[in-house]
Each structure stands twice: as C-alpha cells, then as structure tokens.
C-alpha cells in the first residue's frame, strides 16, 4: 500500500497510513498481465473450471432428457460415469490446480456427493441392492457416512493447521447439522425403511450426535475466541 500524502509504503494489513492517517487506495487484486483473457478477467485456471462445469451441466441435462423423455433406459449416462467425471474434476481442482481454501474442498465434495446420489436415484429408480432400494442406501448409509468423513477430515485439518475461523466453521457446521438432522428425522419417522435397519439407524444416530457435539463445541470455541479478541 502506498500513501499518496507522505510517500510511506507498507506491505501489510494496515488500511491507512500509520503516520499521517491518510486512507490507502485499495489495490486491484487482479494482475491483468497474468490473465488469459485480460478483458474478461479470467485466468486459465478459471477458464478450465468454467468449461468443465459447462460440460458437466450439459451432461446432466442430456441425461435427464434421456431418462425422462425417452424410453431408452440403457442409453442414458450411468451414475458411475458421473462418479468418474466428478472424481476427476474433484481431483483435478484439488490436486492439479491447488486451491488451498478448505471451503472450496468442502463445497466441491458436497456438490459431488449430491450429484452422485441424485444420478444414482434417478437412474436406477426401481432397482434394489441387498433387499433395499437406492433411497435407503443414499439416506441411510452414504450420506451419514459422508457427514462423518467430513467431520473426521475437518477435525484433522483443525488439529494440523490450528486454524479456527468462526464464520467459515459455522458455515460448514450449519450445513452438516442440517443434513444430519434431516437424516435423523428420516430415522424417527421411518422414511425409506431406515428405522428397520439397525446399521442405518445407528450410523444416522452417530452422525447426528457428532453434529450436535460439533456445533456445541463450535459455540464454545467461538465464544472463547470472541472473548479473547475483546480482551
């Protein structure tokens, strides 16, 4: 940041000149020379993401049309195709183009799991697996296991990185809590036959308790952090 009044320069967090008090003019974050399409302010990485997103979206639309519009059940894309493509995108975004923000990983995984479940349910509407339909497997097993895995990964991340941001943590916690509460309600009202299965009920209860514990601990940690900041 550059102070136009006294010439002072700082590379740091100050918003105004510490010596003369003049407000710094905010810098443009985008380096136009590094942009692939300068006029659009799109970097090559963003462009790849945009193209991939559009391809996926087009595939979903085509699949839905084929699934509901025509009687060609064996022609439309399978959930395993989506599993493959989404896994590739997830790895592509996460590993090759590294974006170290945990929020991006979280949203990617959320989008991935819901897309996968939706295609699974829509593609095999009347299919059963080990005596249960796919709605049971989706809401009774895959989703609660996903919630538990996210909790496990975020706990490891928290311990390793020692980063705790109140607002972003609550963003994850609220989404996960809503998912696990919905699944818990499904268990109580015996939707999709979840209550009849001991395994599905237990895994749903565990994910709900984990969410409850996390959100309570989140409140306590946030309270302590706000208190220490106020001091």
């Amino acid at each position: 940041m550059y102070c136009t009044k006294c010439g002072f320069v700082t590379r740091g967090i100050e918003e105004k000149c510490p010596y003369c008090g003049t407000n710094f003019v905010p810098e443009k974050k985008i380096d136009h020379k590094l942009m692939f399409l300068g006029w659009l302010e799109v970097s090559p990485r963003q462009l790849v993401k945009l193209v991939c997103f559009n391809l996926i979206f087009a595939a979903v639309v085509v699949d839905l049309i084929l699934n509901f519009g025509f009687d060609v059940t064996h022609l439309h894309f399978t959930p395993w195709m989506f599993f493959g493509v989404c896994s590739f995108l997830f790895l592509f975004n996460g590993l090759i183009f590294r974006n170290r923000k945990p929020k991006v990983y979280f949203l990617n995984s959320l989008g991935f799991i819901f897309t996968f479940l939706a295609t699974l349910i829509l593609s095999y509407q009347n299919a059963t697996l080990y005596g249960h339909d796919l709605l049971f497997w989706s809401f009774g097993c895959i989703l609660p296991i996903y919630v538990l895995v996210v909790y496990l990964c975020s706990t490891i991340y928290f311990i390793v990185k020692r980063k705790y941001n109140i607002w972003s943590t609550f963003f994850y916690l609220i989404i996960l809590f809503l998912i696990s509460t919905t699944l818990f309600v499904f268990t109580l009202v015996n939707l999709f036959g979840i209550k009849d299965s001991t395994f599905a009920s237990v895994i749903n209860y565990v994910s709900f308790v984990a969410s409850l514990i996390s959100i309570i601990n989140g409140f306590i940690l946030s309270y302590l952090q706000i208190k220490s900041k106020m001091l």
Binding site: G7, F8, V9, T10, R11, G12, I13, P18
Partner: peptide
C-alpha cells in the same frame, strides 16, 4: 530521496519509510 525498511512487530508487516 530514499526508502528505509523496517519490520513492524505490532502488525508483522514491512514498513518502507520515505526519506524525502
């Protein structure tokens, strides 16, 4: 004119003092 560099410990940022 010249700039003199200092590390501000209060904000852990680099300050470049302008000496006109």
């Amino acid at each position: 004119p010249m700039y003199i560099t200092g590390t501000c410990m209060s904000t852990v940022s680099t300050h470049y003092f302008y000496c006109g």
